[in-house]
């Protein structure tokens, strides 16, 4: 479904953010990407949606290469859902309109059709009563659930999550993770950048560990939590699991 082949990215001439990254996510697979801050995991997931350009390598989504000049990027992005660390709901639109905008403008659905779909998804994330509100009237956890619903409204073939719980207060993390766990169990293809190791051990199939722009480890979940092969991953795990 998602193939990342030898991708390298530089910021300016000197700083290399990604070093020859190669991995893949199969249909229905849930892959968790973790690593210390600045390791390039967010950059990598943004490259998958072509929100960040990269200088070398190839990313192929459902058989379509991102770097092929013939690729219609907006069309391809519409098929891959993305959830951001800071939610990025559109503050000038009501919740329902946040969910309808792209359905109507990109997929060409009628307003009624889009609204029906939106309400169904809001029900799924437990927020139907908030449909007429503006994003700022919702808590962080609620906003992030709306953001997930907004991405799902496009009927994506895969979902990307870029640290979806990092900006949330602790008591709101679980309501977002619950939605993600449900998604994973339904067989959604997911690539998730997160530090939530509980989530990883519950639903991930594979765990990718990144450090300094490199994919250091790319192993089945059991192996990763059993005993990571690299020192760096061991150190990272001992740090985040010690409390």
């Amino acid at each position: 479904m998602i193939e990342i082949n030898h991708v390298s990215k530089w910021y300016g001439p000197l700083f290399q953010a990604l070093k020859d990254c190669t991995t893949s996510v199969a249909r229905g697979e849930v892959v968790v990407v973790c690593g210390p801050s600045g390791s390039g995991k967010s950059t990598l997931i943004k490259c998958v949606n072509a929100l960040e350009p990269f200088q070398q390598g190839k990313i192929i989504i459902d058989g379509i290469s991102l770097t092929d000049p013939k690729t219609n990027l907006p069309k391809l992005r519409a098929r891959v859902g993305m959830v951001f660390q800071h939610f990025e709901l559109f503050p000038h639109l009501r919740i329902i309109d946040n969910l309808c905008l792209a359905q109507e403008k990109v997929l060409g659905r009628s307003h009624d059709e889009a609204a029906a779909k939106a309400m169904k998804l809001l029900e799924r994330v437990g927020l139907t009563t908030h449909a007429r509100k503006y994003p700022a009237e919702l808590s962080g956890g609620q906003q992030q659930r709306v953001a997930i619903a907004r991405a799902l409204a496009m009927d994506p073939i895969a979902m990307l999550f870029d640290e979806p719980t990092s900006a949330l207060d602790p008591e709101m993390i679980s309501e977002v993770l619950d939605v993600m766990v449900d998604l994973a169990r339904e067989g959604m293809t997911m690539m998730v950048v997160t530090h939530e190791m509980g989530f990883a051990s519950k639903v991930a199939h594979r765990v990718i560990f990144m450090d300094q722009g490199e994919i250091v480890e790319d192993t089945p979940k059991a192996d990763f939590f059993g005993k990571p092969r690299s020192d760096r991953a061991q150190k990272f795990l001992s740090k985040i699991l010690s409390h």
Partner: peptide, 20 residues
Amino acid sequence: GQPAAAQALGLTYGQTMRYV
């Protein structure tokens, strides 16, 4: 993040500017 979110939903540059 706003234009990024709009583009991630598949909106074109013009639509991102106009609607978001």
